[in-house]
Write a protein that binds this DNA or RNA. Structure first.
Length: 211
DNA sequence: GTCCAGCACG
DNA sequence: CGTGCGGGAC
């Protein structure tokens, strides 16, 4: 599994992504919850709906029905209200200060995040990588789909695939952040569920397997 | 009508 | 391992 050439091709094709798009670390965490099984365009509406209220004290205190109305466009809004409040309660343990959280080692933070209601492995690793600067490689549907079509043998479990990738590329925050962002871009432009293979930058390396 | 950046629960 | 959660884009 030689992944760096794939990264280089995607980087040359799409350019730097500078992900994740968020003004603050807390906004990033909120976005990670809201985008679960949801298109990002629907998340943007919700983020905008917060206006100047996108800070942890508001989410902690806000009436659930009011919060649900703000994030309605992201779907699963009743569940996501619970998740947002649970994640914010975890963040309170660090005085809503991302610098404090960053002092803690990554494995500890990951265990903590996974114990938060509504935070699974993908959401945890997204927060770790993009808000807390910890090198955990995010595995999402896009990652699996693209690697599968490229012909790699994909382990079934989330952590097996994550550890496999992490063991094969340099442990570098920038690389992890940019690589995941490029995977998302590639999945949206070409490697969709129904692939759009014309002008695909990875065409030469792809098995062109459909499903 | 169908599809889509997960997760918790039974 | 199957199901519920839910909106918006197409």
């Amino acid at each position: 599994m030689d992944l760096l050439p794939v990264f280089d091709i995607l980087l040359k094709s799409y350019g730097q992504r500078y992900w994740w798009p968020a003004e603050t670390a807390f906004e990033m965490m909120v976005g990670a919850i809201l985008t679960q099984n949801t298109a990002w365009t629907n998340v943007e509406k919700a983020i905008a709906g917060f206006g100047d209220r996108l800070y942890p004290e508001y989410v902690a205190e806000a009436d659930s029905a009011e919060l649900a109305e703000i994030i309605r466009s992201t779907g699963y809004f009743n569940q996501k209200v619970i998740k947002l409040k649970a994640l914010t309660a975890w963040f309170a343990g660090y005085d809503y200060d991302v610098e404090q959280a960053r002092q803690v080692d990554g494995e500890t933070l990951r265990r903590e995040l996974l114990s938060v209601r509504g935070v699974g492995p993908e959401t945890a690793d997204s927060i770790l990588l993009y808000a807390l600067d910890k090198p955990f490689f995010i595995i999402d549907t896009y990652t699996r789909r693209i690697l599968y079509r490229l012909g790699y043998d994909i382990p079934k479990s989330y952590d097996e695939l994550r550890l496999m990738i992490e063991s094969r590329i340099p442990q570098d925050i920038y690389l992890y952040q940019e690589f995941h962002a490029l995977i998302v871009e590639h999945a949206k432009r070409h490697c969709k569920k129904k692939p759009v293979c014309s002008e695909c930058p990875l065409e030469k390396r792809c098995r062109k397997r459909i499903e």
